[in-house]
Design a protein around this nucleic acid. Structure first.
Lengths: 236, 236
DNA sequence: CAGTGGTCTAGACCACCAT
DNA sequence: TGGTGGTCTAGACCACTGC
């Protein structure tokens, strides 16, 4: 047992208790001072362990009462999404179809809260093995030093493009995943048959004041889409 | 400023520094003792603040060197998925189509690591406004007290069914999202036309040893699918 | 070597909760 | 009133880093 910090030993034992069912969701743990006495460590060390169990989602404290075992968040998953990496065949090319100035419309009003009147629209086509597998449309409010020239735009990920002049820590993002009806434009662009399934990922980027500063749609051919989400607690 | 803990004031100021760009990803923060001197607090209080910034993903410590500003995890989202709630029209009924014993096949061998020879297959149909909107197939390895009788199965979420006799903290889960080609079975079950889009969510449940203990497929009609993922850092 | 973060202690005072 | 968690202090020793 050499080298294992005391607070980690406490964490391990409490996790085992929770996984075994000795502590059930809703149960109250022994108090900090009881644990300190039981494990013969200082209250500070106990607090360090309990604080770790809190950040890992196992327990929560209630001031004046005690620590309680949480209901596990069984509906919560971690999804990794990146415009480039979510397409299964990696060795792909990207082709810039065009950069246009467009006026607002019902869809853009809805997504941007009807503020801007015109937008820069950037269209990309993503290829795998010389065949088009994804179609990407991004909208940015037009004005104030946004990338309007093709040379300024490299196919970086959307958050990077949109948040070019601010910290990436201060933006919020949202993805909505659906299966769209096929439009004629889509069928032609991606060389689709009527039965070919497509995944649509709508992405919105918000600034620190929750104002939409970017909106994008990524259409991926069904068989090339690789979206995975994972959920797990750390083992004792 | 009454009532704001000292360590929170430190956290706030460092977050502002990161969001402003005063501290950039890769930069090293002042040392614990420098911060303690600067803010006139104890080293313990500084550590409490820095530890919070660490768990929130802003910084990371390197022993013997210092604290560094992290690259923000721009590809990481939180996805909320629940078999019932991901269907947009809530007031839905569910109908148990059947519970069968089936032999293994290529798909089940792949998903379960070719261990079990037979499975309990549970089929559900989910309705909204009297119309079928989703089709759900779950597989559980057959044996040892698994639910084999219809009465034992209520339409709880999959993790709850599978992990009936163990702590929900000790299981891991995986979702894979795709758009499937329509089979004849699917078209008939969900009353689909050829152009109707469908989302397929494959779910796997693992036990503490990463052995698959459940596999499910949920087919949702495109227009009723409501999958959203969010990502955000906490503001200063 | 001096400086860094990592661990740990033994106190202190507070606001809140239950009785 | 006594117990709980929440905050904060002033130390101590350690292993590791960089010079």
């Amino acid at each position: 047992m050499i080298g294992v910090p005391l607070y980690m030993q406490l964490v391990k034992q409490i996790k085992e208790g929770i996984n075994d069912g000795a502590f059930k969701p809703g149960d109250m743990l022994p108090s900090e001072s009881q644990l300190a006495a039981e494990y013969d460590v200082s209250r500070t060390t106990v607090r360090k362990g309990l604080s770790l169990l809190f950040t890992e989602g196992y327990i929560y404290p209630v001031a004046g009462k005690g620590y309680f075992v949480k209901e596990p968040e069984i509906d919560q998953y971690t999804l990794y999404f990146n415009e480039r990496k979510c397409i299964d065949t990696y060795a792909n090319e990207t082709k810039l179809l065009g950069v246009k100035l467009v006026n607002t419309n019902a869809e853009l009003n809805r997504e941007f809260g009807s503020k801007p009147k015109s937008f820069v629209m950037i269209q990309w086509l993503i290829y795998a093995d010389k065949k088009p597998v994804a179609y990407d449309i991004k909208y940015l409010p037009y004005g104030k030093g946004k990338p309007t020239v093709e040379k300024e735009i490299h196919y970086a990920t959307f958050p990077e493009v949109v948040a070019k002049h601010q910290s990436l820590f201060s933006i919020e993002k949202e993805l909505r995943i659906s299966a769209p009806k096929l439009t004629q434009e889509l069928k032609e662009t991606l060389h689709l048959n009527n039965e070919d399934p497509v995944i649509l990922i709508k992405q919105r980027i918000f600034d620190a004041n929750h104002k939409t500063i970017g909106y994008g749609k990524l259409f991926i051919k069904g068989e090339h889409c690789n979206l995975m989400a994972v959920s797990s607690y750390n083992m004792p």
